[in-house]
C-alpha cells in the first residue's frame, strides 16, 4: 500500500504573496504628470510684431539675475498676480489701462472684453524656476478673474462649469499672454 504523503502546509503562501504585494506597492508610483498647460502661437517666417497701443500692454520682464520688472519698475514675483488683475479688469476705466471692446458671446451676450495683453519677456539666462513662478502667477491671475466672473454670471466656480460655459468665460476673459522672442536683456 502506498504511503499517503502528508499535506503541505500552505499558510505561508499568504505571507509570500504579501511580500510581493508590498514590493510592488513600494516600487511603483502612480505617476500623474502635472504642470502648466499652454498653447504656442503658430510659427511664421519673419513675422512682424503687430502694433499694439501702449496702454494695452503690461510689460513683464525677467532679467538674467531673475529680477522682475513690471512696466519698467522693479517688482516682486508675488505682486504679478494682483498687477495683472488690476491691469486686465481696469475697473475704473482709466486712460493708461487697456481699452475694452464689446463682443457678443454665446450664453453671456454682449459684454466688455479687455484688449489687454501681458507681454512676458525673459532673458536667455533667466532660470526656469523663476519663469515658472511668473507663469504660475499669471495663471493664478486669470483663473481668479474667470472664477469671479463665473460666480457673478452663474453663481458657480469656474472649475464646476460645463464645457460650453467655460468656453464662454474664456472668451470673455481671454488669456492674452504674449511671449516675445528672448533677448539678452541688459541689467
Amino acid at each position: 500500500m502506498a504511503k499517503k504523503t502528508p499535506e503541505i502546509n500552505a499558510s505561508s503562501n499568504a505571507d509570500i504573496a504579501f511580500l510581493l504585494l508590498a514590493f510592488f506597492l513600494a516600487t511603483t508610483t502612480m505617476n500623474v504628470d502635472s504642470g502648466l498647460f499652454r498653447r504656442l502661437p503658430p510659427y511664421m517666417e519673419n513675422a512682424e510684431a503687430p502694433k499694439v497701443a501702449k496702454r494695452n500692454i503690461l510689460q513683464v520682464l525677467v532679467n538674467r539675475n531673475d529680477q522682475l520688472s513690471i512696466n519698467g519698475e522693479l517688482a516682486d514675483v508675488s505682486t504679478v498676480k494682483q498687477r495683472t488683475i488690476e491691469f486686465i479688469l481696469n475697473t475704473r476705466n482709466s486712460k493708461d489701462k487697456p481699452s475694452k471692446k464689446v463682443v457678443e458671446i454665446p450664453l453671456i451676450g454682449n459684454t466688455d472684453v479687455s484688449n489687454g495683453i501681458v507681454s512676458l519677456q525673459s532673458d536667455k539666462s533667466t532660470s526656469y524656476a523663476m519663469y515658472i513662478a511668473v507663469q504660475d502667477q499669471l495663471t493664478a491671475a486669470f483663473h481668479e478673474m474667470r472664477n469671479k466672473r463665473s460666480n457673478s454670471q452663474w453663481g458657480k466656480d469656474y472649475d464646476d462649469l460645463s464645457d460650453e460655459q467655460r468656453t464662454a468665460i474664456n472668451k470673455a476673459i481671454p488669456m492674452n499672454v504674449s511671449e516675445a522672442e528672448p533677448k539678452n536683456i541688459k541689467k
Binding site: D33, S34, G35, L36, F37, R38, R39, L40, P41, P42, Y43, I132, Q135, D136, E181
Partner: peptide
C-alpha cells in the same frame, strides 16, 4: 521655437 516649427503647439510646462 522648434516645436512651433514642427507645428506641435500644445505644451505643458512640467511642474
Amino acid at each position: 521655437q522648434e516645436l512651433r516649427k514642427a507645428n506641435s503647439l500644445r505644451i505643458n510646462y512640467g511642474a
